[in-house]
Amino acid sequence: MFRREQSEPGSVASLPTDVIDISTFEQILGMDDSDEDRDFSKGLVYSFFSQAESTFQEMDENFENKDILKLSSLGHFLKGSSAALGLTKLKDSCEKIQNLGTRRDETGMREEPDMDVSLKKLLQTIRDAKNQFGEAERALKRFFGDVSSQEK
């Protein structure tokens, strides 16, 4: 995976562009008081982490219950915030979850009559989303200089 381990934490250039849309993210950073004081963006991102984690947990539970409509609404929920932070890949996966949960294909264009297919795809997409979230989380924690998180 494309990564710039060398660049120092705290610089936007250290963020992997395939994971995070820099212009969107910079807009968030632009709302901070200063480059040194990233209270706003850091608080926002970290609350997003916990939000995403609990959403994934809910997804797992609802997947067990095969409540795919609920999965769809959870996907939509996480889509909004990941899009707002510029986490493009995660956003795309969430959108897929949203569509799959309404018994359609990933794009939402076509009906998917086979529940097993929907569930199978959902399982994979949720797994993808978790991986993408992990990726984004590591990158962002590094960006915010949270060294302790690196072994996580």
């Binding site: 632009g30 901070d32 608080g43 926002l44 609350s47 939000q51 929920f77 909004g80 915030s81 707002a84």
Partner: peptide
Amino acid sequence: LKKSAQIDPGWIRQPQILLVEDDPTCRRI
């Protein structure tokens, strides 16, 4: 002391905005 200083378009009075949003991240932004 904001880096991004407030952009005040010159309100006659401060507008009251209601932001209706269930997603905490979007709400904060």
